[in-house]
Nucleic acid binder design. Structure first.
Length: 889
RNA sequence: GGGCGCAUAGCUCAGCCGGUUAGAGUGCUGCCCUCACAUGGCAGAGGUCGAAGGUUCGAGUCCUUCUGUGCCCACCA
């Protein structure tokens, strides 16, 4: 045991535990009717992902609770895996291609998919390995990918079922289009950011009234090339005469009508709106209502097309400039006002998205949302913190249809075929497998839809597709049976941990899918943790260069340090700088060194954590009764905190107990008492139990210590959580010990004040009017003597005459330290006077309160009682201080 | 434009149901390299709990308004 180093060498130790845990498969869970299930599913990181602080926080939280539940004897399963991340992954491989000077169209779909899979095989495991380094106790053997064969099967099954139910439809609508990725995006995938733009006021001349014009205002003047009407509010008095008139659209010279539509807000701009049905969602509505023409002026890459006349070939932003110039020349630009507005950006490549008219597949959301709203309203699913409930409900109640088709190649291809020999609109075949012929006309000229599904259309099945759905019940072979058991055993899962940004993308949709396909909620608790930011409050990002790499922290401070530090700061959003991780590093080191002290002083044959339990509690000394009480109250508070998802509080309790109680007091007091069988039994017991308590938070250092202790061949990860010990909880012991601690602290203060050398011994007189207190002091005389380096300790009814004593009062105990001529009487007086004044103030306030009839009548009796006792105590103390002052002369 | 947070020691934050003298970490000051740990020990200084009202016997804690700050949602072109 002598080779235990004085530092916790995490770099050597952590990888060993990672591989041992994984190789022994101890985190594997399977249907086990003898135990209660506890399951969570990981929010699958993108295969393109590399571990950032958000992942580290998210996964540490999950690991804490799953380790805790595992130790409590649940059959646990933490399902790991990755998400194929359609657009993100395709972008990565497209960038590789670009270096070869190629695009995906150059190499074709098949070759591109081959490259994508190759990339996935090569790099897709990166983040999983990084999660392992964190200590995540996932059921690694189960690791799933959202494009695994059976997972794809689930996705197709879902598409077919929804289609057959009439909840999936195809249609031409305005969607968010990313001109760079050249695909449709859902509303959630368009991130709106405030931007400084301009509002352009343009004159639109009336056709039959030379010189007259209407002024319209727009932020995107280039879209005027696609205008097919001008709209005004039907009751706007300014424009009554215009309704039904014709306008000649400048530049393009198209005749367009003025229509009346209640959508128009008369207060905004000029109250007249240009209508571009093919390039704006509202205009699309107006266009539909008034049967206007839909003129698309852009190619898929946002370059203007032939419909733009002279401007065709220009990019949309170039066209904007050109149009403005032209309008100026034509004297049709009335004015330009600065205008800030929210502009949508692609959440993957940050290009400004274009509202674009195209044919896409949609999911009708209202019918799915209703039960999902219900489940949350009825409290079947609870959000923590609770306030996110409202955010969820608000979104769900205003939910819009979900555009699920993407014009990319990496993903689940839409299971739809079009018959070339059937009429448009009647030619759709939806099928899980490739159909041989058209069921209507038997033609075999079928073409599969080119598009793939939104990545989230597979992610939303994660809680049950990962457990084998939908093969459940389809066959009876043994392997499938096991799958079936897993699904019914582990579904629904218990808790979901994620960040607030993901509520709409994923959480809400999983709830809908769970209810729709499993008939049951996917999880009962949703824990929303804070965002990790840098010290200035900015989001951590690679482009800002302010990111702290969790892997760097693991290398420098250890995974335990990373985990502990993140969690202790996780009460709200986290503002992280490197120094924040020192607390975890220092604590891990402290635990390690406490272990060294204990192991170096108690040889293996003498390690007996059961021995003390054969002793009568009354025979134990105060510090022992105190530390046992502290341990068991801490244990129950920590358990409670974890159960209610108050993780930072749990860590605070542990930190306080282990460091401040166990190390600073119990071990310090008993350093010389290792040969006492009772004491060393307790020292060992508390150490051993503490590492159980700490293990979910800091698995590596505790596992290593457990290994050093060698009490049981199985890893600490699968040991039992400590049982409760109400018989050891002892408030009296805690109070008594606190008195001694306060007394010792005060006397040390005196030593420090008068510059008494640490090694110098002193004499000390103690006195108390209270018999039980006197007894307490006498019983613990040796503790006081060693803690304070006291040569002669005298406990008497009164203090000796003051001849150069420094004195003080703690509760009802007075003390005097004879120091002779080093005492400056004046300073000593000042110190006591200051104390006296403080107490005077307290007494005054308290007396006032106790004299208030309302307080006596209305406050609870125990509060009044407490206050009375406190007043009594303060008055005694004041008397004591007066005496001490008098003795100074 | 709506909605939601946050504001407590120099800094970062705890403070659950309103009830003793508001806590911790870090930083700062002083003393200690005492044979587990200087990533340590002991002791200390430091707060009118953002502002103003209100409810209450009693408010950091509940209510209202305001100020500052952060986030989310939204089809005012």
């Amino acid at each position: 045991m002598n080779e235990l180093p004085p530092r916790f060498i995490f770099n050597d130790i952590e990888p060993n535990w990672c591989s041992l845990w994984e190789n022994t498969n101890i985190f594997h869970g399977s249907a086990n009717p003898a135990k209660k299930p506890y399951s969570i599913v990981i929010p699958p990181p993108n295969v393109t992902g590399i571990l950032h602080m958000g992942h580290a926080l998210n996964n540490t939280l999950q690991d804490i609770i799953i380790r805790y539940k595992r130790m409590q004897g649940h059959e646990t399963c933490w399902m790991p895996g990755t998400d194929h991340a359609g657009i993100a992954t395709q972008n990565v491989v497209e960038r590789q291609l670009a270096q070869e000077g190629k695009t995906r169209y150059d190499i074709g779909r098949e070759e591109m998919l081959a490259r994508l899979w190759k990339w996935k095989e090569e790099y897709g495991g990166t983040i999983i390995n990084q999660l392992k380094k964190l200590g995540s106790s996932c059921d690694w053997a189960r690791t799933r990918f959202t494009m695994d064969d059976d997972y794809s099967d689930a996705v197709k099954e879902v598409f077919v079922r929804l289609y057959e139910k009439g909840l999936i439809y195809r249609g031409r609508y305005i969607i968010n289009w990313c001109p760079r990725c050249q695909t449709a995006l859902s509303d959630e995938e368009a991130e709106h950011r405030e931007q400084q733009g301009a509002l352009y006021y343009i004159r639109y001349p009336l056709k039959n009234d030379a010189g007259q014009y209407v002024i319209v205002a727009t932020t995107r003047p280039e879209t005027m090339l696609g205008d097919t009407a001008v709209a005004v509010h039907p009751e706007d008095p300014r424009y009554q005469h215009l309704i039904g008139q014709t306008i000649t659209l400048p530049i393009i010279k198209r005749d367009i009508p003025v229509v009346a539509d209640a959508f128009v807000d008369p207060a905004f701009g000029t109250g007249a709106v240009k209508v571009t049905p093919a390039h704006d969602p509202n205009d699309f509505e107006i266009g539909t209502r008034h049967k206007l023409a839909f003129v698309n002026i852009m190619h898929a890459d946002a370059v203007l097309n032939e419909a733009a006349g002279d401007f065709s070939g220009l990019d949309r932003f170039e066209a904007r400039e050109a149009i403005i110039e032209t309008l100026k020349e034509l004297k049709l630009l009335e004015k330009v006002e600065p205008h800030t507005h929210a502009v949508g950006h692609c959440y993957r490549c940050h290009t400004v998205v274009e509202p674009y008219l195209s044919q896409q597949w949609f999911v009708k959301m209202k019918p799915l949302a209703e039960p999902a709203v219900q489940a949350v309203r009825e409290g079947k699913i609870k959000f923590t913190p609770e306030r996110w409930t409202k955010v969820y409900l608000n979104w769900m109640e205003n939910i819009r249809d979900w555009c699920i088709s993407r014009q990319i190649w990496w993903g689940h291809r839409i299971p739809v075929w079009y018959c070339q020999d059937c009429e448009e609109g009647q030619n759709i075949i939806v099928s899980k497998t490739t159909p041989a012929s058209c069921p209507r006309c038997q033609s075999s000229r079928l073409i599969q839809d080119e598009d793939v599904l939104d990545t989230w259309f597979s992610s939303w099945l994660w809680p049950f597709a990962t457990f084998g759905w939908p093969r459940q019940g389809e066959t009876t072979d043994d392997q499938i049976n096991e799958v079936n058991n897993d699904l019914s055993f582990f579904y629904p899962t218990k808790a979901l941990f994620t960040a607030s940004e993901i509520i709409f993308f994923w959480v809400a949709r999983m709830i809908m899918a769970g209810l729709e396909f499993m008939g049951e909620i996917p999880f009962s608790d949703v824990y929303i943790h804070g965002t990790v930011r840098d010290a200035q409050g900015r989001k951590m990002s690679k482009s800002l260069g302010n990111a702290i790499d969790p892997l760097e922290i693991i290398k420098e401070y250890g995974a335990d340090a990373l985990r502990f530090s993140l969690i202790i700061n996780s009460g709200q959003d986290l503002y992280i700088s490197k120094e924040k991780f020192e607390i975890g590093r220092n604590f891990a080191n402290k635990i390690w060194n406490a272990c060294r002290l204990v192991l170096l002083n108690i040889p293996p044959e003498k390690r007996d954590p059961e021995f003390f339990q054969t002793l009568e509690k009354e025979q134990m000394d105060l510090p022992s009764r105190w530390i046992l009480s502290r341990f068991y109250t801490t244990l129950s508070h920590v358990s409670q905190a974890i159960e209610t998802y108050r993780f930072s509080e749990a860590e605070n309790l542990i930190y306080e107990f282990f460091w401040k109680n166990y190390c600073d007091w119990y071990l310090e007091i008993n350093k010389a008492n290792f040969n006492n069988a009772g004491i060393s039994s307790i020292i060992f017991f508390i150490l051993e139990q503490s590492i159980h308590l700490i293990h979910p938070f800091m698995p590596f250092v505790t596992e290593e210590i457990w290994d050093q202790i060698k009490r049981n061949p199985k890893p600490l990860s699968v040991q039992a959580w400590p049982g409760h010990g109400p018989q050891w909880e002892d408030q009296k012991a805690e109070d008594d010990m606190q008195l001694l601690i306060d007394l010792i602290t005060d006397i040390r203060n005196v030593r420090a004040q008068w510059r008494i050398k640490p090694q110098q011994e002193i004499d000390c007189f103690l006195s108390s009017q209270d018999e039980t207190q006197t007894a307490l002091l006498q019983d613990n005389a040796s503790l006081l003597k060693t803690s304070l380096k006291i040569r002669n300790l005298q406990i008497a009814e009164s203090l000796p005459k003051n001849e150069g004593n420094s004195t003080g009062v703690v509760k009802n105990v007075t003390f005097a330290i004879p120091l002779g001529n080093i005492i400056d009487v004046h300073e000593e007086q000042l110190r006591l006077q200051k104390q006296h004044a403080e107490i005077e103030k307290l007494i005054l306030n308290l007396t006032k309160r106790l004299q208030n009839d309302s307080f006596i009548q209305k406050a609870p009796a125990d509060v009044v009682e407490k206050e009375k006792n406190r007043l009594q105590e303060l008055e005694n103390k004041q008397q004591d201080i007066k005496k001490l002052l008098a003795s100074l002369g």
